[in-house]
């Protein structure tokens, strides 16, 4: 069950202020980095919903995001829908596909769930790769961004687009929090804790899992459409399983099941990647080592570690404050 704490609000405030500062002060390259962080943040938010709160470790979220990008591109360029309608359409398509994947995989657990989602992701990758209408290996170009000139915003300007993505992230975050605090989110937590118990209480477990997976897909599709708008060009590489793997890495680096942590992870990952690749072509090596160290340390990522440290300091007053609970029946 997701709860906001003072520390979480504080970190969110710092992240928000940092993003705004960067959006208004950075040059072209800085804005590109910011946009990359924001889109990745939306993706990992969606992934944390299923992996962190539902225990559904998905290796298909990269592919779902790629599908979102393709759906947006197809709907806007080929079908000719206005960009905002194409955005909504892409979210709906990815949401529906994710719901189906979630429903099918709901019976699998542990490594089988990971493999099953990987299979669906790879299926999408192969399909896109091999179908000529999607441009095959060459991908597709000429993707347009929504036209908001009616309200005086030109999204072809990097700064405006960065702010557009930031607004998108805020919306996605609020949506994720609302879902996790709803009846559905509570049931998901119950399932994560004990699927058997929830079933014995009369809950149709697979429906809850599928619903959450679908909602997560909706957000993932949103991230995908933004990614397509951002680079204005898409290729099957977007759906590669290593994208899903990296998204999982970001969630873990940040802190699984904290929602705020993955945002921190996204910032850390993108900055680390850019800083390292400027120095060495072997930045994957460093990321790999960092990942291994984080997992071995058994801390719940950067944010989880910080939260535990802060919790440890407060533990004395809260412990003393615990009321003696009556023992009689």
């Amino acid at each position: 069950m997701f709860r906001h704490t003072t520390f979480r609000y504080l970190v969110l405030a710092i992240l928000g202020a940092g993003a705004l500062f960067q959006a208004f002060s950075a040059g072209y390259f800085g804005l590109e980095v910011l946009i990359e962080i924001l889109i990745l943040a939306i993706l990992v938010l969606a992934l944390d919903m299923v992996a962190g709160f539902g225990g559904m470790v998905s290796l298909c979220h990269g592919a779902l995001m790629g599908l979102g990008a393709y759906a947006y591109a197809m709907l806007s360029s080929i079908v000719g829908l206005p960009p905002l309608a194409a955005l909504v359409g892409a979210m709906a398509i990815v949401g529906a596909l994710a719901w189906i994947i979630g429903a099918i995989c709901a019976r699998s657990h542990g490594i089988y769930f990971i493999m099953a989602t990987l299979a669906f992701g790879q299926m999408a990758y192969s399909y896109i790769f091999q179908t000529p209408i999607f441009g095959g290996d060459d991908g597709m170009g000429g993707i347009t961004r929504p036209d908001l000139s009616a309200i005086g915003i030109d999204l072809n300007d990097s700064r405006s687009f960065a702010l557009f993505c930031l607004a998108g992230l805020v919306l996605a975050y609020l949506a994720a929090v609302a879902v996790l605090r709803s009846g559905l989110g509570r049931s998901l937590c119950g399932i994560h804790h004990s699927e058997e118990r929830m079933r014995a209480l009369g809950l149709t477990v697979w429906r809850v899992k599928a619903d959450i997976f679908g909602l997560s897909g909706l957000i993932t599709g949103f991230a995908g459409a933004l990614a397509a708008m951002h680079v204005m060009y898409i290729s099957p590489g977007l759906l590669d399983w290593t994208v899903s793997g990296e998204a999982l890495v970001v969630v873990i680096l940040g802190g699984l099941g904290t929602l705020v942590g993955p945002l921190v992870g996204a910032v850390a990952f993108v900055i680390l990647k850019h800083e390292l690749s400027a120095v060495t072509p072997y930045w994957h090596l460093v990321v790999g080592v960092v990942l291994i160290v984080v997992v071995l340390s058994r801390a719940n990522g950067i944010f989880g570690w910080l939260e535990a440290r802060i919790g440890a300091r407060r533990i004395f007053p809260t412990h003393a404050a615990v009321k003696k609970v009556p023992n009689d029946a």
Partner: peptide, 30 residues
């Protein structure tokens, strides 16, 4: 088979929500 991190109220609520048809309500706390 209790839900450890939750309060007693939340444990009961989780079960009651299923019966009341609130377990899959979206955007509303059961």
């Amino acid at each position: 088979t209790l839900f450890d991190g939750l309060s007693v109220r939340e444990n009961l609520g989780l079960a009651a929500a299923v019966q009341a048809g609130q377990a899959r309500r979206l955007f509303h706390d059961s």
